[in-house]
Structures are given as C-alpha cells and as structure tokens.
C-alpha cells in the first residue's frame, strides 16, 4: 500500500510530538517521585538548582547535612553529637533532572539510617585537650584576615564536637583563642575590678570579688546554658562583643586561679561558674571557695573576661 507523502509527514510530526510528551512525562515522573519522598516523614531531603551538576550536588549535600544536624540535635538534646558528611553520603540517594539549562539535584536520606552514623563524644577536662576545626575558612575569610577588627576569631570555630576515641576525648571549645584580636578598650565599661579579702578556710562562706553588672550578666548567661551548643553560642556572642578576651581548656590554662571557669555536665549543661578571687576560685552561686579537683570528671573551659 502506498502511503501518501502528506500522511508520511503527519506521522513524522506525531512521532516528534510523542517524543516531547514522553520526555515531559519522564520529568513529571521524577518530580512525582521527589514529591513522594518530600511528603514521607521518614526522610530528610534537600535540593539545589545550579548551573553545573557538581555545584548543585555540593550545595544540596551541604543543605542536607544542615537538616541532619537539626534533626539529630532535636532527638539528642542532652548529648553532644555530630554527624559527618562522609557518613551521610553512603546512606543517601540522589536524583537529577534538568530545569531548563540548569541542573536540579535532589538528595535524601532515611532518618533511621542516620542513627547508625551519629557520633557521640565524652569529655574529660583532665585529659589533654585537642581541638579540631571542622569548618574550612569561608569564602570571605581572606577579606577578613586583612581586617583584624572583623570576625577573625569565629572564622575557624567548629560547629560540633569531634571525638578522638571512645575514652579520651576532645574539648568542646573552638580552636582559636581570642588572643589574636588586638585588645580594644570598651568606652562603656566602668569601674575597675575590686577584690575583697576573704578567709582562707574553705568551709567558711566567703564573698567573691565585686563583679561589674556586665560581668554578672555574662556569667549568668552561661548558667542558663543547658547543652554544649548553647555554651558555644554564648561564647561566640561574648567574643564578638569583646566581653570574653580569651578562653581555653584546662590543659592550656595559664593560671587556674586567675580566670573564670565554666563547669558542665556530660551533656554540656552548665552546673557551676567559678570566679577568681585572690588566686582562689569561688562558686558564683554559693560564693563558697571551691577547688577544681571537686569537679573531676566534669567538662570545663576557662574564660578571661575583658577588663
């Protein structure tokens, strides 16, 4: 049977239209799958649309890691935990599709798979403290290094505790001390510290040296922290406001009796703040003289407040 040329053209046109419909249907199918996963509360997901697939993949995974951190923190409120990207990636899946000339990458991970890769840390203040920064310098970090008055101390701080091994551990604090910042006198700060003499017997209640209003507020803000993340956030804020001049772990404390101590339980909840008083330490809440050895086994950081 001879097929007329018009009929042949018609078939070709229909075939092309069908191909377009098929591609569109496939895209709809991927979108449908993506939406199904988004609706499923068993998954955490993220996506990015960028000019290159590799860029979209990187951004999507960065965002997924943020969601994972939030999920883990919500489900482990009293424990310092961390999750690394290299642990998440093998457990995750991805889907790619084009959006015009951009690459859309969708990544997701099952919540139950995260539990197996959560790393828990324990801290012993008497152990040698090592600190690790998990954050690489930011894109604008170079700019900051030429500006010593800017956010330099925060640039290398870590966002989670990373344990060395099961028994020995790392400190909760960030890596760079604030000593690199040139000290700047706060014009608003008034009244030099006043110290009061106090009896040497530890059983006798004694008063701590006179603290200024801002020092009391800074100390009390630590007392309200219930986990490591809160302590770290508070420290960052006080560093930025230059109320904390420097800080560190027990291992690198220059003079134990000359600094403030923030004592924390296993989960990072602050149980005491110790104030320096003539070379000795006094509990801020009870005003009693104490010794660091009374807090053996607890987490601790020392801080030096600005004058």
């Amino acid at each position: 049977m001879n097929i007329s040329s018009n009929f042949r053209k018609y078939i070709v046109a229909l075939t092309m239209l069908a191909s377009v419909s098929l591609v569109s249907a496939q895209e709809v199918s991927v979108s449908k799958q993506i939406n199904q996963i988004k609706r499923n509360t068993q998954y955490l997901y993220s996506e990015a649309t960028m000019e290159s697939e590799s860029e979209a993949m990187k951004v999507a995974y960065d965002m997924l890691l943020e969601h994972v951190h939030e999920y883990v923190a919500e489900n482990n409120p009293n424990v310092a935990v961390s999750v690394l990207l290299e642990d998440i990636k093998p457990k995750s899946e991805s889907m790619n599709m084009m959006r015009g000339n951009m690459h859309r990458v969708f990544v997701y991970v099952k919540k139950s798979d995260i539990e197996g890769v959560v790393r828990q840390s324990t801290v012993d203040p008497n152990d040698r403290a090592t600190v690790k920064g998990t954050e690489s310098p930011r894109a604008m970090g170079d700019k900051q290094q030429s500006a010593p008055a800017a956010e330099q101390p925060q640039a290398a701080q870590q966002s989670a505790v990373v344990p060395n091994n099961a028994e020995k551990s790392v400190s909760v604090v960030a890596d760079k001390p604030a000593s690199q910042i040139a000290p700047v006198k706060h014009e608003n700060e008034t009244a030099a510290r006043q110290t009061e003499s106090s009896p040497l017997e530890t059983t006798v209640k004694s008063t701590t040296r006179q603290l200024t209003v801002w020092e009391k507020r800074a100390i009390e803000s630590f007392l309200s922290c219930t986990d490591f993340a809160a302590v770290q956030a508070k420290l960052n804020r006080l560093l930025a406001e230059y109320k904390v001049k420097r800080y560190g772990t027990p291992d690198d404390c220059p003079e134990q009796g000359d600094v403030f101590w923030v004592i924390m339980n296993e989960g990072g909840g602050v149980i005491a703040v110790l104030c320096p008083d003539n070379g000795q330490l006094a509990d801020y809440k009870t005003s009693q003289y104490v010794s660091l050895s009374q807090y053996k086994g607890k987490n601790a950081i020392w801080i030096q407040l600005s004058k």
């Binding site: 990015a48 960028m50 951004v59 960065d62 894109a139 956010e151 925060q154």
Partner: peptide, 17 residues
Amino acid sequence: MDEGLYNRLTQEGKRFD
C-alpha cells in the same frame, strides 16, 4: 538568590548566633 548563598549564610548565622 541561589541555594548556595542561602546555605552559606544560614551556616554563618548559626555559627555566630
């Protein structure tokens, strides 16, 4: 703005409170 910038600023915001 693109997701990369949004994510970076979110991370910085959490880091610096």
